[in-house]
Design a protein around this nucleic acid. Structure first.
Lengths: 345, 345
DNA sequence: TTGTAAGCGTTATCAA
DNA sequence: TTGATAACGCTTACAA
């Protein structure tokens, strides 16, 4: 039993030709039900698993997709990878994680080489790669189908999966206002980052609906990093009339705001409410733990994989829009948010 | 130019047979230098890349290794994956990340299926899988070569890569004592976790060398999680004579200790020094940033991949020990440690 | 509804 | 030191 069983063994066991076994493997509907049963029994009996290398050699498919990401594998990217792997496993696909060094001088050539060598059925791009114009241009030319996760720019350029960004921010700010906060600080991304304007739009819409005047002094740019969040919070809290709540456009910046609060001996959430965005691992390694928005990261990557496996990445609807899925988010209330103190009002 | 070039194209271009090209690809020493040159020129000329699927079909090798990890892809596991991928790329190998659900009831069968379907040349196990006896037993039976990263138990059972755990703790504690700390708290792992005893040994040895008496009240078990670190620090700091420094056996627990310090309005590092272990992303998302031990995680996984690629995973030295590498660590001093206040002495 | 035969791009065998 | 040719396990024509 050293060698794993092949399609030939299954065919012999089931008393059919290998072509019929192949049909069963590929869900060809033209197989008689009784034959189908016998073949499936033989497959179970022998514990047969198709050899992917042998499958991809003659065929058009490779049963493989790659997940491209930028340099390090962050918490977010790890989740995406996990989601993609899980979904692929069910379909008999595998996934290659491919780290790209976007800073290297010969970036373009390196990427082309990778794409040529990969021989995959599709690509998943996760942020910030999803919006990297040079990378997108090269991939477009490679003709490999791809799906972007959480693209912000030119979303209909390709198939994509995202969540309702603007609405998530809207709900968080509405929640904070509902607690009684009138002065809500916002730490966004740097202004040239496309997602920033969307998130800011959600912030403004929530303020509008609650009848709170928009005050540009309560909006600070950040870099989606811990130190940038700390500095932004420093500026916000140095205002003559500081905010009673701060919403960071990701968890790391919110954690930075939390650190700044500690520095100023401000109690969270009594003196200051802080909310994040992502529900990353960071939201639970601060004290108190962060109220945040849970992004369906694993699910988004899983959907992206599904689109690729189903061969829909290239499809275009009648209205010209690419295949896409919008997934729901979740407001996760933890300990870092509460009603403001009366005297703050 | 739709189809990528094959070995046949290269052979034609170089004016040799495909077998000779194959020899060059596999570094067969029996190729004449002049022939070697011509073939390599043709390869460069055509930008030829071997088709891995075709390579693995007839051959004994699959040019693929898998990295097994438990459930989620943590920061640590992401780094390991990155390191393995990078090293594999250089050698023309690819890596499959394989998440294992160790909690599932049919764990064993699921793992066997995965191993059967994988068809890889080797496996890399990262903690905590490296010490999972059930997983190890099944893998041993599968006969697939494997390398463990940072095993703690029965290390010579297989090839492995690790760093000098005990000495890293020793150096950190020595560093803290050198700053003038006499009362150094230690948050270790749970006592049945094998790495705990090693790290504790390093702690005790450092105390010994500095002539500081060991006090069991300054040692608290933890679970390698943020909340467990917070609670352990709570107990340590509630002592009648609390420690002036706390060393957490990983960054998450150290971060928990940091949160507890904030809770008690203790200034770090003035009132309390805190040090972590791992140099994970967590060490830079607290305030102040943590002094820590940098584990060479990427390098360890890269070395594990190299052992597999070189086919040394099964080798046994004359003294009966398996192939292994011990990698150096690095003491990373940041802002969370300083000399204790004089009045604390 | 099922089967036969010809590849797919490599490596392995054996001969030259 | 090199080359012809048969595998490897599967899919894809093309038949039956």
């Amino acid at each position: 039993m050293l060698k794993p069983p092949t399609i030939v063994d299954v065919a012999r066991e089931a008393g059919v030709s290998i072509k019929t076994v192949s049909r069963v493997l590929n869900r060809d509907p033209s197989v008689k039900v009784s034959t189908l049963r016998r073949v499936n029994d033989a497959i179970d009996e022998l514990r047969y698993l198709p050899n992917l290398a042998a499958r991809s050699l003659p065929g058009a498919r490779n049963y493989t997709i790659a997940l491209l990401f930028e340099n390090a594998i962050s918490d977010y990217q790890g989740k995406a990878l996990k989601g993609a792997i899980e979904r692929c496993r069910q379909a008999g696909y595998r996934v290659f994680p491919e780290p790209l060094d976007v800073t290297s001088p010969d970036q373009d050539e390196a990427l082309k080489d990778i794409l040529r060598g990969l021989r995959v059925d599709g690509l998943i791009l996760v942020p910030p790669l999803s919006d990297n114009p040079r990378v997108l241009a090269i991939i477009d030319r490679s003709r490999i189908p791809y799906v972007r996760v959480s693209p912000q720019v030119d979303v209909y350029r390709s198939a994509f999966v995202k969540m309702e960004d603007e609405r998530a921010v809207f709900e968080m700010v509405t929640y904070l206002a509902g607690l009684g906060h009138q002065r809500i600080g916002f730490i966004g991304g740097n202004s040239d980052h496309p997602s920033s304007s969307l998130r800011l739009a959600g912030y403004r819409r929530a303020l509008d609906e609650r009848g709170i005047a928009f005050d540009p002094d309560y909006v600070e740019p950040g870099l989606f990093t811990f130190p940038s969040g700390l500095e932004a919070a420093e500026r916000l809290l140095a205002q003559p009339i500081p905010p009673t709540a701060i919403f960071g456009a990701n968890d790391e910046m919110a954690l930075g705001a939390l650190a700044q609060a500690h520095r100023l001996n401000l109690h969270v959430p009594e003196d200051l409410s802080i909310a994040g965005f992502d529900d990353s691992i960071f939201s639970s390694v601060g004290w108190p733990q962060l109220t945040t928005i849970r992004q369906p990261t694993e699910e988004m990557a899983a959907e992206a994989a599904a689109i690729l496996i189903d061969g829909m990445a290239r499809d275009v609807a009648e209205d010209g829009s690419a295949t896409h899925r919008i997934l729901p988010f979740e407001l996760v209330v933890r300990e870092s948010t509460a009603a403001p103190r009366a005297r703050n009002e």
